[in-house]
Nucleic acid binder design. Sequence first.
RNA 1: GGUCCGGUAGCUCAGUUGGUAGAGCAAUGGACUGAAAAUCCAUGUGUCGCCGGUUCAAUCCCGGCUUGGACCA
Length: 297
Amino acid sequence: MIVVICGPTASGKSKLAIRLAQDFNGEIINGDAFQVYKELEIGTAKPTKDELMMATHHLFDYVEPTKNHSVMDYQVEARKTINEILSRKKLVVIVGGTGLYQKASLYDYTFTEEKENVDLSDLAPLSNEELYSYLVSLDEKASLKIHPNNRKRVLRAIAIIRQTGCKKSEIEEAQEHKMIYEDVHFVGLNINREELYKKINDRVDSMFEEGLVEEVTSLYEKYDFNNNAFKGIGYKEFIPYFEGKNSLEETKELIKKNTRNYAKRQFTFFKHQMPTIWCDSIEEAYNYVKGLVNKDD
RNA sequence: GGUCCGGUAGCUCAGUUGGUAGAGCAAUGGACUGAAAAUCCAUGUGUCGCCGGUUCAAUCCCGGCUUGGACCA
């Protein structure tokens, strides 16, 4: 059985996952795009060393911050790990806030082999409109699902054609949009918005107390912040601070705001993209999983 | 006590030569297949500080009051 603990950031997912793994013979897999990186600790709200020892954790802390990590890389590792845990006849507990990563691992998403060194530089000077009409000419079906202003997606759809020789729409049509595992349960932690925002604000405050500034400062001295690892909330907001444009207080408020915005997007994703069962408290979620495990026996 | 400037959306403010108002941010809803903590889309009714006057019509003009700030005593 696979249980996915999802829901917004700061809702208590990690702690619940540990309890479930301990009580129901489970192992935990990270389902979060930024907790995969080494050295990013406080800002990613990674489980502490003590917590990591309370249950078996996988896919935390295994990617170098300079490496470009993608959904496909995650998918490969996650599926491998899921299969290993299942073969041990243990409960798989996936926990994290990145819905896309979880979906890509559990559903029949396929990523086609890409040619390297494909030149896309001719696209850079094009306006959004020009780029979009170019995509329409290449893959009209895919273009219908992308807004012309969403340059990143438009570019990606064009890149797929150049790098794989296949159309994005064709790749997706070849899939059944079904889960590739049996007995998968998405359990979402639902929190009243006001309460969640307070938790987020408090958590950012305690990140600063725990030494976030020191962590980010030493990373900034060591690495190029253009790497994807530093595009995460709690890291990218420090760039204007290091450049002398923002105060520390402004940086902190920005992190809080971005985290709140992010939490809202997470609700939308988990609400509409997967068959999530929502629980109003940690206890309720725990009991729900307990019921599933007992029924399974 | 006097002079001047301000009080308009949750916040910062714009505006209406008089016809009951709009930006940014926030907030809310949504999309999501190789950056996803990313990227993108949609949504603006608010006693225009209060009371009165002028007017067909006042948030706008006039008077008073209230309130914040600056300056002068």
